[in-house]
Design a protein around this nucleic acid. Structure first.
Lengths: 195, 195
DNA sequence: TGTACATCAGTGAACGCGCGTTCACTGATGTAC
DNA sequence: TGTACATCAGTGAACGCGCGTTCACTGATGTAC
């Protein structure tokens, strides 16, 4: 063969990674196949030997961007625990770099309009996220209470990050991030400087 | 003139109302000018005697869809107070009818990518929303505390509504709405059945 | 009162452009003999 | 060891289509005389 073994897989991975970043940065609809392939160092014709359609790539990119795969912000709740993770999620760098961040916050309103197959990928990733947050909540809560609280925390984080991104005034934007952190920590049972 | 007085204004209003609904339902990019004009009972050519560009219409539609204008869900916090408003915001009918609902939840992730002029319209509407929520919070909070809490409540509502719309399983979706309500009521200092 | 003209909201053909997708092709390599 | 052929990842021209936008036009009405 023309290319060394594993070359195609490598290319495939590169396209998915490029798409996962561009979709989160510019939205799914705004990013064209040709544009994406060029960014991956290829021509657009080859796209269909890797994917059956753009929608097929969207699904793969959603999987890639989901919280279970590598992700600069708010991926797994590592050591440092929930507080650190919450602060990391609503930090300014995450607000300013959606392309490396949480897919839910970057694409939520577009997500709701996607075909069911793509939404299923997202649903599963949200479920993992919820379970992960719940497992870090205080033992004083019942399992059902943990789950409910975990969903509320994630809703707050997603909402706050999006509002912080949409607003024009930087001070207002930071105020939203801080309000989100305070509220999420509160929900998590972590005492914060809430007045 | 061919048409009675006020006819053009009437048409203008109809286009904006149609756009405000369709943008929230299908996203801004997905909705074409010709499609929109047809839905308003007109042909696409006349569009540019009403607006300078599609972007101009987006701004007008954002204004129309903002919480200060008439809106079936979660518009003003009327009598019935904050609790009723929160429950109304996260009710199933709002989830299922983004075209009549909150623009922030319907468009948040697209909003962040819009030009500054459109985002300014949104920012102002968010500011009004924040003030309105804050004014209904218990007097035990300081003004700064009220503001922070108001932002957190709105973040939670926006995030929860979007996640509820994105998820595939109806039971999971309703669970998200309920978790959002419980958490928002909690933040608002209204005792709820949180376990 | 009757005629000629100006107005202007709305029409619909046409524009250049970029989209997702298809397909005949290229050309460096591995394999068969 | 040398030659002929099969493979197949990637190329780039071309497809139909819908987009936002432009513009010459229509035709019912109000106005001027």
């Amino acid at each position: 063969m023309r290319y060394e073994k594993g070359h195609k897989e490598e290319t495939h991975r590169k396209i998915v990674a490029t798409a996962a970043a561009r979709f989160r940065k510019d939205g799914i609809e705004s990013v064209g196949v040709a544009d994406l392939m060029a960014e991956a160092g290829l021509t657009h014709g080859g796209f269909y030997s890797h994917f059956r359609s753009k929608e097929d790539l969207v699904r793969a990119a959603m999987e890639e961007a989901s919280c279970h795969s590598v992700n600069n912000f708010a991926c797994r709740i590592e050591e440092g625990g929930l507080e650190r993770w919450i602060r990391s999620y609503l930090r300014i760098a995450h607000r300013d770099h959606p392309e490396k961040g949480c897919a839910a916050a970057a694409l939520a309103s577009e997500l709701a309009r996607l075909p069911k197959t793509s939404r299923t990928v997202f649903s599963e990733s949200l479920e993992r996220m919820t379970t992960s947050i719940a497992s870090h909540l205080p033992a004083t809560l019942t399992p059902a209470g943990k789950r409910k609280t975990a969903i509320a925390i994630f809703s707050t984080l997603v909402g706050a990050l999006q509002l912080a991104r949409a607003v024009v005034d930087p001070a207002h934007s930071e105020e939203i991030l801080e309000a989100g952190i305070a509220s999420a920590l509160d929900l998590a049972g972590i005492s914060s400087s809430r007045q």
